[in-house]
Design a protein around this nucleic acid. Sequence first.
DNA 1: ATGGTCGACACTCGA
Length: 264
Amino acid sequence: MRLVTWNINSLRLRLPLLAQLTLDERPDVICLQETKVPDPLFPADKLQELGWEHQVYWGMKGYNGVAILSRHPLERVLDVPNWCGRGDSRHVAAWVSLPHAKVLVHNFYVPAGGDIPDINENEKFAHKLSFLKEAREWCSQQAAEKTVLVGDLNIAPCEHDVWSHKQLLKIVSHTPVEVEALNAWLATGFVDAMRHVTPEPEKLYTWWSYRNRDWRKSNRGRRLDHIWVTPDLLPNVKAFRVLKDSRDWESPSDHVPVVMDFTI
DNA sequence: ATGGTCGACACTCGA
């Protein structure tokens, strides 16, 4: 199984890029975040034409939105929480029926959390931490097997997941309180598959801000996008690639796709 | 320390 996770930052705007990615990589499954398209306007037919026969998606007007596209049958998981009681389209889950196995895929878009890392001054940061706590509590009650959890988790947990650990300690996405919350969630039964394959101190980034003249030269990246697996799947993790060059595609997303290959 | 750039949508918000 080849699986991709990508914050596409508007599915409709970047449909041509998704088509290119589909042709270039031939993934079995792709998880998208920030599709920014309400369900009635989801481009299901166009994705069908690209070979994405099976689709589960949940969007809303203007922002958020997640989707799982697959060449193999999908069985959507319906009994998932209404995170923070908000009705936000930030999570979908589905069983993927591969020829010789079934795998559960969770696709998350964690709240970004605003600019000020203080729950009293910034409601968005409070929301982010609440979301992480709920996710940890819920996952601790799920069977920790045959599961891949991916998405834009909006946190760069490791020292070498950011361009400057010291300079980002008070920047939302790399504050100790967020890292602690993310690691507590991870510890409910997952392994950080990207860091399992490529341990620190090697730098890993999946996102570069739009607000840089030359993103490659300044290289102020962060690893906000993640692939977690339950330990039973760890022997099946082969390799991954961060498609860094896609950051230079025409009208790119600020996140780049991460491709992981499994021997499943 | 500041402002820098996007996308959706309708003026400004979220990132």
